[in-house]
Structure formats: C-alpha cells, structure tokens
Simulated assay, not measured.
Amino acid sequence: MASSAVLFPSFVWFLYLFCFLCSLPLAICKEAENDRHALLCFKSRLSGPAGVLASWSNKSFDVCEWHGITCSKPYPRRVIALDLESEGISGSISPCVANLTSITRLQLSNNNFSGGIPSEIGLLRRLRDLDLSRNNLEDPE
C-alpha cells in the first residue's frame, strides 16, 4: 500500500510536466501567428510597386521568408526587424505594427507613408532602431 502512495505523487508530477511540455508548441505557434497577422494587417493599408510586398500573403505561412523581414535565429523564430527602406511604398502606418512584440528595428524611411505615427509604436519595449524619416508623416500636435 505504501508503494502506491509514493507512485501517485510521482505520476501526478509527470502528468503536469507532460501537459506543460505539450502546450509549449501551441504557445510558440500562437506568437508566430500573431506576428503573421500583424504583418498582414500592416500591409492592408499599403500600396507600392508590383512585387515589393508580393511575398506577404496568406499563401506563405513563414513570415521569415517575406521580403524585408528578419527573424530571430533561435527557436521560436520571431520577427525582430522590418526593413522596407526606399521601396516606393505609400499608405499609412497601421497600429497593428505594435503587435510585433519582439521587433528591435523598424526601418521605413524614404517612402511615401502619410498620416500620423501610431502611438502604439511607443509600446514596443524591445524597439531600439526606428527610422521613419523622409516620408510624408504628420507632426504630432
């Protein structure tokens, strides 16, 4: 009887550990999926020369292969840089960009972005390099 009492807590510990480890890929996939949705939302307000954002599509699930995107090397791969400098892109900067929570570099200079700079960009705690120069952005009042 004593041996089954010892086995039961060990089994429960194993079960908790198993459930935790099985849920990790779901959490990691969710973060990568959030990056994908944020980029598609960002793209929805843009237009530009043919081909510039052609790789940004629902048909391609690996955002790390999209034009202008750099992802982190270790797993899970997250978007860490968005570099669309001098691409002839016009439109407005969507607040969706703030959902790229791992981004450290946002380079959108020398395009035709217009409108305001979303205040949500200020929520990007890891952002270290921001360049929005040479666009048609409005000054904050």
Score class of each variant (00 low, 15 high):
residue 1 M to G: 15
residue 1 M to D: 10
residue 2 A to G: 12
residue 2 A to H: 09
residue 2 A to T: 08
residue 6 V to K: 10
residue 7 L to V: 00
residue 7 L to A: 13
residue 9 P to L: 00
residue 12 V to P: 00
residue 15 L to H: 04
residue 18 F to R: 00
residue 19 C to G: 04
residue 19 C to S: 10
residue 22 C to N: 07
residue 23 S to G: 00
residue 27 A to M: 13
residue 28 I to S: 10
residue 29 C to R: 15
residue 29 C to L: 10
residue 29 C to Q: 13
residue 29 C to V: 02
residue 30 K to L: 12
residue 32 A to F: 00
residue 32 A to M: 15
residue 33 E to T: 01
residue 34 N to M: 11
residue 34 N to L: 13
residue 35 D to I: 03
residue 36 R to K: 14
residue 37 H to L: 10
residue 37 H to N: 08
residue 40 L to G: 08
residue 44 S to W: 03
residue 46 L to N: 08
residue 49 P to R: 06
residue 51 G to V: 04
residue 51 G to F: 05
residue 51 G to M: 07
residue 51 G to H: 09
residue 52 V to P: 05
residue 52 V to W: 01
residue 53 L to F: 05
residue 53 L to G: 04
residue 54 A to T: 09
residue 57 S to R: 13
residue 57 S to P: 05
residue 58 N to R: 14
residue 60 S to W: 02
residue 62 D to I: 08
residue 62 D to M: 01
residue 65 E to Y: 08
residue 65 E to W: 03
residue 69 I to H: 02
residue 70 T to D: 02
residue 74 P to R: 11
residue 74 P to Y: 03
residue 76 P to T: 04
residue 77 R to T: 08
residue 77 R to G: 00
residue 79 V to F: 03
residue 82 L to A: 04
residue 85 E to G: 10
residue 87 E to S: 12
residue 89 I to R: 09
residue 92 S to F: 11
residue 92 S to R: 10
residue 92 S to D: 05
residue 94 S to Q: 10
residue 95 P to W: 06
residue 98 A to F: 06
residue 98 A to T: 07
residue 100 L to R: 06
residue 102 S to T: 00
residue 103 I to S: 04
residue 106 L to W: 02
residue 107 Q to N: 14
residue 108 L to R: 07
residue 110 N to R: 14
residue 113 F to H: 12
residue 114 S to H: 15
residue 115 G to R: 07
residue 117 I to V: 15
residue 119 S to R: 15
residue 120 E to M: 03
residue 121 I to Q: 01
residue 122 G to Y: 04
residue 122 G to E: 04
residue 131 D to R: 09
residue 132 L to A: 03
residue 135 N to H: 10
residue 136 N to A: 07
residue 138 E to K: 14
residue 138 E to Y: 03
residue 139 D to M: 02
residue 141 E to Q: 11
